[in-house]
Write a protein that binds this DNA or RNA. Structure first.
Lengths: 206, 206
DNA sequence: GTCAAGCTCAACCGATCGGTTGATGCCCGC
DNA sequence: GCGGGCATCAACCGATCGGTTGAGCTTGAC
């Protein structure tokens, strides 16, 4: 089974390589520290599974890299191996075509199993991630509208209702209506709390 | 030279171990995934240098672990090896007694040099971190007081002035005074903007 | 000992925000 | 066609926030 590593941390790449050395059925055929390198390397090496970090320094992130890798002819499975487990990251990664989502904090055995499962095309999630998804399924949560997200993004920059209104070509009254909806959906009652809640849920990015 | 690893990610611990295998003068005498384990392990193994991650899962973080390790009789040097480079993290780590601050994204050679330097008691910083510190030195920037940071942290949770006042056992008037100072120092004029500005500058964490 | 800086508090005012109610138009799915 | 969700707007009110001025206190530096 041919593997390809994408992670901007040399330490992490070395760690994965070291861990996989004991697994006879796995071979690392290449690695990359950025999205661009990843796409080139994967096209060249044609691995079976790509282990992908979501944080890749400054350029395009792992989600974008996942999308591009999947678009390659004969694109391999992508197993996301990252540090965080925010809803937005998980959803975006899966949406971009990732086959699984693992946390770096997981025990090595779990990683091995997940790689083999990913190679078979099975969807694997870290127990913690799976639990999070289940919670989301049981309680679908807020589901903000596009307009409400726009409001939130301006809110996060510290804009007042008047500024938001101008920026979106609506009246202040409408802004307030949207905000009240957002408050309700996020379970908060101030604009500042709305921003942090939205960031924590991965609805917006600072 | 005896090293001790503290990182909650098995992958990262494996990576550091793998990288250090080629260095004849370094030996890993123990590792830990949490602050508690770290203190126990360091007391037992008496390493020369501790490589410390700042994010350690749920319990006390690496800063706290650093502080406790340094308080041990014959406490070793602590070299922080982490992912982020926010001002707050750097300052808190140094303040807790860390000898150096490295990023996991740094090339392995840099890591080796830094470990040796740390063992000699020299203060080492990642080039990126050093550059950041230099920027801060050139342009001292805001330099918020401890009290102002406390205010900001509560602010970030969406607390109103009244709540902040209660939490810090001061009056609302004082809170407003502090806030006005914060606004001035951060160059903003609303509480929400203050939060995002503070997060972006690494003054607080969400 | 003086001076600066930080923390504390007070009173006041206008601007903004939060909450409510009610209303209109649009588009989608049943 | 008709309900329902979404986006839009209006008017009102109390609460909160932002800005200002001024002042007392402690602490540490020069």
């Amino acid at each position: 089974m041919k593997l390809f590593l994408v992670d901007d941390h040399p330490v992490v790449r070395a760690g994965i390589k070291a861990l996989l050395e004991g697994e006879a059925d796995m071979e690392i055929v290449g690695e990359a520290a950025s999205a661009e390198e990843a796409v080139r390397g994967v096209a060249l090496r044609e691995p079976d599974v790509v282990l992908m970090d979501l944080q890749l320094g400054d350029g395009p992130d792992g989600v974008e890299a996942t999308r591009r890798v999947r678009e390659l002819p004969g694109g391999p499975k992508v197993l996301v191996l990252t540090t965080y487990e925010t809803d937005a990251d998980i959803v975006r990664a899966i949406d971009a075509g990732a086959t699984g989502y693992l946390l770096k904090a997981c025990p090595p055995d779990e990683l091995f199993q997940a790689i083999r499962a990913a190679a078979r095309g099975e969807s694997v999630l870290s127990p913690k991630v799976a639990a999070k998804m289940m919670r989301r399924m049981r309680d679908p949560g807020p589901a903000l509208t596009a307009r409400e997200i726009e409001i939130l993004e301006l809110l996060a920059r510290g804009a007042g209702n008047k500024e938001i209104a101008k920026a979106l070509f609506i009246t202040e009254a409408t802004v307030k209506t949207h905000l009240n909806h957002v408050y309700g959906k996020l379970g908060v009652d101030t604009r500042t709390a709305a921003v942090t809640a939205a960031v924590e849920r991965g609805l917006i990015r600072l």
